[in-house]
């Protein structure tokens, strides 16, 4: 399994555990104060765990891009990984902070998070599109 794929899958596993921990936090008695974290919880699981796992396995197993570059452009794969995780970490931090103390800083953090997550999707699609091909 290539190094990049191992990073994707191990990061996905970390988000799975983190997501389940946040799920417990949301289920605790008196959790109404943290109920605003539900979107964060959903995105940790669907984006950090599921989508990241899919990205990693797709980079690993989809048909080869070419003999010279079997997984397309490696730098795009790494860029996707960095954008995805940077975006999600910013979201976790600033979505929580914006619940208790919304400020221009939290607004900026959420906007940066949105941009990084969107860039992750664009980079993944660019690098994967040509690998989705008939044999």
């Amino acid at each position: 399994m290539p190094l990049l794929v191992r990073w994707y899958i191990k990061a996905a596993l970390i988000y799975l555990v983190l997501g389940l921990c946040v799920g417990i936090l949301l289920a605790l008695p008196g959790a109404s104060q943290t109920s605003g974290l539900f979107p964060t919880y959903l995105h940790i699981l669907t984006f950090g765990w599921l989508t990241q796992l899919i990205f990693g396995v797709a980079i690993w197993m989809f048909p080869k891009y070419s003999r010279e570059r079997p997984r397309g452009y490696d730098w795009l794969g790494w860029a996707t990984f960095i954008f995805l995780n940077l975006g999600l970490i910013l979201r976790v931090i600033f979505e929580a902070l914006s619940l208790s103390a919304p400020s221009p800083l939290t607004a900026g953090g959420l906007i940066a998070s949105a941009l990084f997550q969107w860039l992750a999707g664009v980079a993944f699609v660019i690098n994967t599109w040509k690998r989705v091909k008939e044999k």
């Binding site: 979201r91 979505e95 997550q117 999707g121």
Partner: peptide
């Protein structure tokens, strides 16, 4: 791509 674009807009709108 569509999901990420709409999701990005929603998150920006939250900020």
């Amino acid at each position: 791509l569509l999901a990420f674009t709409f999701g990005g807009l929603l998150l920006v709108n939250k900020g």
